[in-house]
C-alpha cells in the first residue's frame, strides 16, 4: 500500500518534470543523435572512394562502434554492390577418416533445392556461400570444421582431417552470349580451390 503510494508520487513528479515541451526536446535530441550516428556509420561503410580517410574511419569506428553494436543499430545496405559477383560458387567439404575413407559433402547447394528448402536454408547459404570462404571470416573456419567433425564422427573410425574447397564457375559475360560463344550457358569451366584444412584432434569430438 505504502509502496503504491510512493510509486504514484514518483509518477506524478516525473510527469511534472516531463512537460510536453521538455518531452519534445528530449525526443528531438534523440532523433538528432540517432540519425547522426546512423549517417556516420553508413558513411564509414561506403566503398573506399566515398568514405573518409583511413585514420578518420578508425577513430570514428572506435568511438561509435561500441554504441552502435550495443544498441544493434549496425547496418549496411550493399546487396549486389558495388559490384555483383561474376561467378557461382559453393563449398565442398572432404572429410578424411582415420581409415583413409573420404566423405564428400556440399554445404548449402541452393541450385539443387526446391523453393521451401531454399527459404529454410537461406541463412545457411548466407553463412557458407557468402562468408565462409571469405578471408574476413576465416577466423571461424576451425569452429565450423569442429562442428562437422562432431557431426560426422564414427565411434570406430573418427575423422582426422577436414578440407574445405570452394568450387566456382565464372558467369559468362553478356557479350559472349550475344556472340554465341557457348551454346550451353550453364556449363562453364569450374575451379576448385582448397582454402582451409583442419586436423581434427580427439578433444574436438
Amino acid at each position: 500500500m505504502k509502496f503504491n503510494h510512493q510509486f504514484e508520487n514518483l509518477e506524478a513528479r516525473v510527469k511534472n518534470i516531463l512537460t510536453p515541451q521538455s518531452n519534445q526536446f528530449f525526443i528531438s535530441l534523440f532523433i538528432i543523435v540517432y540519425f547522426t550516428v546512423v549517417a556516420i556509420w553508413l558513411w564509414l561503410n561506403l566503398p573506399v572512394s566515398l568514405k573518409p580517410r583511413e585514420e578518420v574511419c578508425k577513430n570514428l569506428n572506435i568511438s561509435l562502434g561500441p554504441i552502435v553494436i550495443l544498441m544493434g543499430l549496425q547496418q549496411n545496405w550493399n546487396l549486389f554492390s558495388p559490384s555483383v559477383k561474376t561467378y557461382n560458387a559453393y563449398n565442398l567439404v572432404a572429410t578424411t577418416f582415420q581409415s583413409g575413407f573420404v566423405k564428400l559433402s556440399e554445404l548449402s547447394r541452393m541450385d539443387k533445392l526446391n523453393l521451401l528448402q531454399k527459404t529454410q536454408q537461406e541463412k545457411l547459404r548466407k553463412f557458407f556461400n557468402d562468408n565462409l570462404a571469405n578471408q574476413k571470416f576465416s577466423i571461424v573456419n576451425p569452429a565450423v570444421a569442429r562442428f562437422l567433425a562432431r557431426s560426422y564422427n564414427k565411434p570406430t573410425d573418427p575423422p582426422t582431417r577436414i578440407s574445405f574447397f570452394l568450387v566456382s564457375s565464372p558467369i559468362l559475360p553478356p557479350s559472349s552470349r550475344l556472340n554465341k560463344i557457348s551454346e550451353d550457358s550453364s556449363f562453364t569451366k569450374s575451379t576448385i580451390e582448397n582454402y582451409f584444412d583442419y586436423g581434427v584432434s580427439p578433444e574436438d569430438l
Partner: peptide
C-alpha cells in the same frame, strides 16, 4: 541513399 551510392560507383 546508401544503397544508391554503393551501386553508382560499381
Amino acid at each position: 541513399l546508401h544503397a544508391f551510392l554503393d551501386k553508382i560507383i560499381g
